[in-house]
Design a binder for these strands. Structure first.
Lengths: 338, 338
DNA sequence: TTTAGCACTCAACTTATCCAAGTGCTAAGA
DNA sequence: TCTTAGCACTTGGATAAGTTGAGTGCTAAA
C-alpha cells in the first residue's frame, strides 16, 4: 500500500516524499509515473498533501489516521529495549510513586519524546487511618494512610487554647466514622455530617477541618508524572518561544493534563494533531493507554511526540510498557496485601 | 562618564551603540566625533568592543565589571514592585519552605529572569526529635524534626521478624543520644558510635540505619528553589537546543547549583559572563546575595539573566528583596520560637 | 581639545539567477 | 484499461550581486 510507504518514509526522514524515491522503495517494481497517479488519487481522498504545488507529499491528519487505524502493525519491541525497561524497573525496592515516576522517565528516554504516567485511580482507594502526630510545642503533623499504602502528611501549628485531648477525641471520632470508606465518600461527609459531630469537641472546628480536607484532597488527587520534558525542545522544531512556554505550562497543570489524558479507553489510543482537544497540542500526537492493576484500579501511560513519529515502533513500545508496568504493580500490591 | 551611558543604552536596547546616538543622549552637549575619540580610548582599555569593524560598541565583560564595581548605583525600587513583593508574601499563613519557594517565583516574575532561593543553612540546625509512627500492618513512617521546625518523613516497610518493641528501644536510644545535636554531628555519629549501640537491640541494624541516614541527609540537604525556569527561553536568545538542555539540567542538579551559588559573601555580588566558574553559564550574569535570619543562619537569593541585564534595577531589586525576605523569616521564627 | 567633513567598512536587506526535485499531462505500449 | 516514458512547468532554497544605512577612523580647521 502506497500510503503506508509514504507514512513510513516521511516519519523516518521528515522530508516530503516524492514519486521517484518512493517508487524505488516499494517492494514491487513500478515506475514513478504510476506512483504519481496513485498519489494524485490519495490526495483526492485527502489522505496526503503537498507543501507547495511541486513538492513531494506529506501525510495529512486524515492520512495518519487511516494509517494508524488500518495499516500499522505494532513493531515487536527490540530485545534491547525490553532489557532497558526491565533492568531500570527492578533493582532497588521502590515505592509505588517512585515506580510510576521512574516509568515516565524510562519511557521518555527510550523514545526521546515526552512521557506521562498517571497513578492508578485513588478515588476508589479507602481511608485506612488518620492520625495526628505531635512534633513539638505546638506543631502537629496530620498523617493519612490509604488502603493501598499511600501516605500523605501535612504539618501545621495548633492555635492556642486547643488541647491535646480535644484533638485526640476528634481523631478517634474520625477514625470511628470513616475508616474503610472510599476517599470520595469521606470528602462528601466532610461537607455534611462530620462538621456537626466535631463541633461537640472543638470550639472552632474550621482550622481542623481545613487540615483534614487538605490532606484528604492531596491523597485523592490523581498524581501524574512527566518524563522527558526537555525532549520537547528536540521534536518541536519550529515552535516559537511563546508556544513552548504554554506547552510547558500545560505540562505542569495537572488538571488540564488530566483532561487531555482522561479520555482513554482500554485499547491503545492514538490522537493525531488537531484531533487532540487541547489546542496547544494541535501540532503533536499523543499515544495513550491504560494499565490495570487488578483490584487496585487503572492508571494511564501516555506518550507525546511530533505528529510525524514512527507510530509502529511507538505503539509497540507503549504496549509492552503498559504490560510490564501492570505486572510490576501487581507484584507490588501482592507483596503489600500479604 | 561615557562607559556608564554605553552600558545603560546597550542593556536597555540590546543594540550596539554608536557615537551619534550616544552623543545626543549625554547630559552635556558634545559632538559625535568627540564621543568617537572617547570610545576609541575605552576600547583601548578593553572595556568595550566592536562586533565588526564599523559597528557600534558593546561593553565587554571587563566593561560590565567596571560599570558594576564603580559606576552603577542601585535603582530605588519602584513602589509598585514593593507592593507586589509585600502583597505576594503575606496573605495566607505560609510555611517556611513555601515562603522561600514563593520568593523565587516572585523575584523571577518581577524581573522576567530566573531566580533562585536557598533556605537558610540547615547544617547548623539541630535535631529535636526522631520517631517512628506505625501506619499499618508492617508499614512505618520515620519522622525527623529539627529545632527550626523542619519536618522530614519517609515511609518504609518493616521486615518480618523485627518487633515493635525493638524499634521503640532503638528510637529511645537515638533520642537520648543525639537530640539537640547539630545535624552534621549526628551524621558523623551515624558513621561511628551509633551502629555499635544499636547492635544491642537489632540483629540486622543496616536497614534501620539506612532509613535514619536517608531522612537525616534529606533534612540536612540545602534546599533550593528555582523560579522562572521558562524565562530562560526569553533571554537566552541565540542558544541552541543542546545548550538549553544542559542549562535546564544544571538547574535541577542541586549540588552543582550549590557550587554556583555557594561562593557568596555578604554584599550583593555580581558575576558576569565568563567570570562565572560554571562553563554552562558563561553567557549569562548572576547576581547573588545572602540574607541572614538572626540566629537561624543565612540563605542565598540569586538571579540569573543575560549579561546585558539592566544591572542597576536588578541590583536594587535583589537588595530590596533580600531585606524583605530576611524580615519575613525573622518574623516567622520569632513566632515559632515563642 | 573639540568638531566638521569625508572616505571607507560591513551587516543586513533586496533582487536576480540558477538548480534540483517534483508535479501534471499527454501519448504510446502492453 | 493500466502502465510508463517523455516533457513542459512550478517552486523552494541556495548562491551571487547590488543597495542601503549606521557607524568608524582620520585629517584638518576652529
Amino acid at each position: 500500500m502506497i500510503l503506508k510507504a509514504i507514512v513510513r518514509d516521511y516519519t523516518s526522514n521528515g522530508v516530503p516524499v516524492g514519486s521517484k524515491a518512493l517508487a524505488s522503495q516499494l517492494p514491487m517494481h513500478v515506475s514513478s509515473a504510476t506512483v504519481r497517479n496513485e498519489m494524485a488519487a490519495l490526495e483526492e481522498l485527502g489522505l496526503i498533501n503537498k507543501t507547495h504545488s511541486s513538492s513531494g507529499r506529506v501525510p495529512s491528519v486524515k492520512g495518519y489516521r487511516y494509517y494508524v487505524d488500518y495499516l500499522v502493525q505494532p513493531d515487536p519491541v527490540k530485545s534491547n529495549d525490553i532489557d532497558v525497561i526491565k533492568s531500570s524497573l527492578d533493582g532497588q525496592f521502590l515505592k509505588i510513586d517512585e515506580i510510576i515516576e521512574l516509568s515516565a522517565n524510562i519511557l521518555s528516554n527510550l523514545t526521546s519524546y515526552t512521557a506521562f504516567t498517571v497513578k492508578p485511580e485513588l478515588k476508589e482507594s479507602r481511608l485506612s487511618g488518620f492520625r495526628l502526630v505531635p512534633l513539638g510545642k505546638r506543631q502537629v503533623m496530620a498523617v493519612l494512610v490509604t488502603d493501598n499504602g499511600d501516605v500523605e502528611t501535612q504539618t501545621f501549628g495548633v492555635p492556642q487554647g486547643v488541647e491535646g485531648e480535644q484533638l485526640e477525641a476528634v481523631v478517634r471520632l474520625i477514625n470511628d466514622q470513616v475508616i474503610g470508606q472510599p476517599l470520595a465518600t469521606v470528602l462528601e461527609l466532610l461537607q455534611t455530617s462530620i462538621p456537626l459531630q466535631i463541633a461537640h469537641y472543638l470550639q472552632s472546628p474550621d482550622g481542623f477541618l481545613k487540615i483534614f480536607g487538605d490532606v484528604l484532597t492531596k491523597a485523592a488527587q490523581e498524581r501524574f508524572f512527566v518524563g522527558g520534558r526537555l525532549n520537547l525542545l528536540n521534536y518541536s522544531d519550529n515552535a516559537d518561544v511563546e508556544e513552548l512556554k504554554s506547552l510547558y505550562t500545560l505540562l505542569d497543570r495537572s488538571d488540564d493534563m488530566a483532561d487531555v489524558l482522561g479520555q482513554t479507553g482500554d485499547a491503545i489510543q492514538v490522537q493525531i494533531g488537531s484531533e487532540i482537544t487541547n489546542k496547544i497540542l494541535r501540532d503533536y500526537s499523543l499515544i495513550t493507554a491504560t494499565y490495570s492493576v487488578g483490584g487496585h484500579g487503572k492508571g494511564v501511560i501516555a506518550l507525546l511526540g511530533p505528529t510525524r513519529m514512527p507510530y509502529s515502533r511507538m505503539i509497540g513500545l507503549v504496549g509492552a510498557f503498559r504490560q510490564e508496568l501492570a505486572k510490576r504493580l501487581m507484584d507490588y500490591y501482592r507483596n503489600f496485601d500479604e
